[in-house]
Amino acid sequence: MNIFVDILSGGVSGGTSIMYAALGETVSERSGVINLGTEGCMLMGAFSGFAVTSLTGSPWLGILAAAAAGGALALIHAILVVTRKSNQFASGLSLLFLALGLTALYGSGFVGQQINGFDPIAIPGLSAIPILGPVLFDQNILTYLSYVIAPALWFVIFRTRIGLMLRTAGESAEVLTVNGYSIAKVRYIAVVTGGIFAGVGGAYLSVAYSQSWFENMIVGRGFIAVALVVFAAWDPLKVIGGAYLFGSALALSPVLQARGYEINQFALDMLPFLLTLVLLVFLGRRAVDSTPAELRKVFDNARA
């Protein structure tokens, strides 16, 4: 395998975690709620997924638990910002602290344990295609699922009645009220859905990607996911590309080190964050134009 294929396939397997979280955050932000606690939801998911897989031996039960834990944490965010009208940024960050503490408290016994998680399954035939095969078709089941979920989510958001309600909550919420729907209900569902996705994204890391658990293992992926949603202009299909781009940036340093290049890993670790910033600058204007109007209010006025 050449280095290019290594980086791309590392990008797909490493980016899937970010993709799940960013897809969820897309749903949440489409309804007008930004959740910086996505990082915390991913942590809860990573821990719960790992713990339940370890205790029951079933990675699927682990994923289910991760979804529940991510959703539960996001529910607190929904209560705080939708019902109690607290500041969205501050609420999200307090959730992160809560998740850091909870996963440290309950996770200490699981550090260093082994689990049987999701291993890569090469799809016969397809995985033999040059370049594309190893990059796309020698992955684990959660990655294959994401190939279906991302376009499906696009369809739901842009082509169904539910999606229309979601986008209305984010664009001109009053219209929902006028038509007899509850803005709060739509936002609750959207935020919790976002948390569920983020939980799965976190569990992807602990149950499939690294098959291990350690304190604060998400290290910024949730924040990258939030930024990714902005420059993907709240479109699930663009989220796919963005997630793989970051995955590739993250994969760069292990791939180069494995090949014996003498590089300082931390210079490369900066890359995904720098890349996000640069892309936000270049896509900034366009992204701003497509910002859901209710979300723009949140961005523009951050006072207590």
């Binding site: 607190i76 705080l80 501050a90 609420s91 960050l93 307090s94 959730l95 992160l96 602290f97 809560l98 998740a99 850091l100 503490g101 909870l102 440290a104 408290l105 200490s108 304190e215 604060n216």
Partner: peptide, 15 residues
């Protein structure tokens, strides 16, 4: 208890 446990209290207080 892990030292990071205290983050729970910080988070709850702020919430």
């Amino acid at each position: 208890l892990p030292a990071a446990t205290i983050n729970i209290l910080t988070g709850l207080l702020l919430i």
